[in-house]
Structures are given as C-alpha cells and as structure tokens.
C-alpha cells in the first residue's frame, strides 16, 4: 500500500483543480455582485454616478460593521439577535455620557463598553449557561431595548457637544469617515479570522465543537470572545449611528439591524451552522444588500415592497449555496 500510492503523488494537477473549485466557491457571491451591479447600471443611469456609489457605501457602513461581527458569531455556530437593541442601548447611554462629560472620547468609550459588556453577557449565557445562542440573544434583544427605552423615557436623546457629529459627517479624500471605519473593521476582522489563533479556533469550534474541545481548545473562552467582539463592533456602529444625526432613538434606532446583518452574512455564503464562510463573502453580501436598497429607491419601487425583494434575494442566495 505504502509504495503503490506514493507514485500517484502529483501536487500540480490536484492543486490547480482545488484552486478552481476554490475560486468558484470563493467568488460565487462576487459573481452575483457583478451581475447585480451591471444590471443596476443598465436599469438606472443615475446608479453609476460617483455620488450615488459613495452614498451606497455610506448607507451600508453601519450594517456592514455589525455584519462583520455577525460573520464571526455565525462561523462559531451561533447567532446574535441582540445587535439592534444593543446598538440603541449603547447609543443612548453614550450620548448621556457624552453630554455629562462633554468629552467625545468618553462618549465613544462608553458606547464600546456598553456594547462589549452586552456581548460579554451573551457570551457568558451561551458558553457557561449552555443556553442556545438564539434564545440567549433573543432575551438580550428584549432586555437591552427595554433598558434603552427606560433610560430615554421612550424618546430620543441628542448630543450637546459640538464636534460629535463630525465623526459621521466628515470625509477623508472622497470617502465618508463611516465608510473608512467599515473598511478598517473589515480588514481587522479578516486578519483576526485568518491570521490569528482566535480565528482558527472559531472555525474549529463552529465546525465541530466536541473535537475542538478534545483538541484542548478553551471553547468557552472563545465563545465569550466571539460575542464580546460583536458587542464591541455594535458599540462602534452605535457611535456612527448617533453621530450621523446627533441623536439616537430608544425606540426605533437599530430596529431590524440583526436581520440585515444576518442576511448579509448568509448572502455572503457563511453556513448557518458554522465552521465555513468568509469575511470577504460578507463584505460582498453587504454591498449586494446596499445596491438593492439603492436601486429600489432609484427606480421608485414602493418602500412597502422593498422587504419583499430583500427576502426574495436572501432565499435565492441560500438556494444557490445548497446547489454547490
């Protein structure tokens, strides 16, 4: 056996073959993106306008940042439904801190802290409490929203510190700052997932938790880390959201963000049960959602029908993944 099989060794042919299939699995979402992009350009002359393009990026930046965290959570085999509510809570608390301290840095820090802490609690519930992530984060979703409403008395809170709005309303070269933050976060999460042991452990855990544990990985800590990470990213998103209009609504801000973020991750090709998926896929998933929203506005599709189109795209995306 040992001798006969050794002859078959032929690295070249097998690696080009696997590279081809890798290209396909890697780029199917990009191909979809290109098709949608071209179709949009044909359907609406205004689509290709530079300002419109930059506008799309600006509009997806908040969901994009959250979706990066969601990718990590879903790769670990979990889900986080609490992102929208936590965003509202982090926003409300940080604006209060901002106004009380007069310091923008304190405001940002508090937003990150609230987001991370909520994520940490989610992680604790999932890892140590052995509660299914869907349930744990569903609870957090309700609780965080409720606390935000209580603190803001059901209304909105506005910043009273000049310069705070500059975060979301200034630009570097041609890009708005939120877009740049989105890109930086994408790159950071990419490096985290592919170049550090944390990322490797997340993939391992999502693919086979028991084997990961039996490989001496501290599975519980990784899980807590995963939820804390998405919490921190939600904190960043909360700062951008708040800064954009200098106010945050305890009742409506962040509402249904979890659905858009999950949709982007799924369109990007990440497997619902974890272990397989790519950050780049999510990036293009986010962009596809952004273009769809933009196109529906440009072509005057009734806003009531936009959810329908989005739902359709998600389902089509999943059907395509099953085929592969």
């Amino acid at each position: 056996m040992a001798n006969t099989n050794a002859k078959e060794y032929n690295p070249k042919s097998s690696s080009t073959k696997s590279r081809l299939s890798w290209l396909w699995s890697e780029y199917s979402v990009i191909i979809a993106f290109v098709i949608i992009f071209i179709a949009s350009a044909i359907l609406s002359p205004r689509f290709l306008d530079m300002n419109n393009q930059l506008n799309i990026l600006m509009q997806v930046s908040i969901i994009g940042i959250i979706a990066m965290g969601m990718t990590v959570v879903m790769l670990s085999g979990g889900i986080d439904l609490s992102v929208g509510s936590v965003l509202a809570l982090a926003g409300v608390v940080s604006v209060l801190a901002l106004n009380a301290s007069g310091s923008i840095l304190v405001g940002i820090f508090i937003a990150l802290l609230v987001g991370s802490f909520a994520g940490f609690l989610n992680g604790l519930m999932v890892a140590k409490g052995r509660i299914a992530s869907f349930i744990a984060t569903l609870g957090m979703m309700a609780a965080a929203r409720s606390i935000a409403l209580y603190i803001a008395d059901g209304g909105s809170v506005s910043g009273q510190v000049t310069g705070f709005t500059a975060i979301s309303n200034s630009d570097l070269w041609i890009f708005d700052v939120p877009v740049i933050i989105f890109f930086i976060m994408t790159a950071a999460v990419y490096v985290l997932m592919h170049k550090t042991r944390f990322g490797r452990y997340v993939y391992a855990l999502g693919s086979n938790e028991k084997a990961a544990l039996l490989s001496a990985i501290r599975v519980d800590r990784i899980k807590i880390g995963v939820y804390t990470l998405i919490g921190a990213l939600v904190g960043i998103a909360a700062v951008i959201e708040t800064s954009r209009l200098n106010s945050i609504s305890s009742s409506s801000s962040g509402s249904q963000y979890e659905l858009d973020a999950i949709a982007a991750v799924i369109i990007g090709g990440t497997r619902m049960t974890g272990g397989r998926g790519k950050i780049i896929g999510t990036l293009f998933g986010v962009l596809i959602l952004g273009i769809l929203n933009n196109m529906m506005n440009l072509t005057n599709v009734s806003p009531y029908l936009q959810g329908f189109v989005k739902g359709l795209i998600i389902i089509i995306a999943v059907v395509f993944q099953k085929r592969e």
Partner: peptide, 17 residues
C-alpha cells in the same frame, strides 16, 4: 465526531493544539 475538524484543512488540523 471527536477528533477531526472536517472544515479545516489537513495542515490546520495538525496545528490545532
């Protein structure tokens, strides 16, 4: 069920611990 992580490459399974 217990030893291999089927979505990771051969190399990554080797280095996991």
């Amino acid at each position: 069920e217990n030893a291999i992580i089927k979505d990771l490459s051969v190399i990554h399974n080797m280095s996991l611990s």
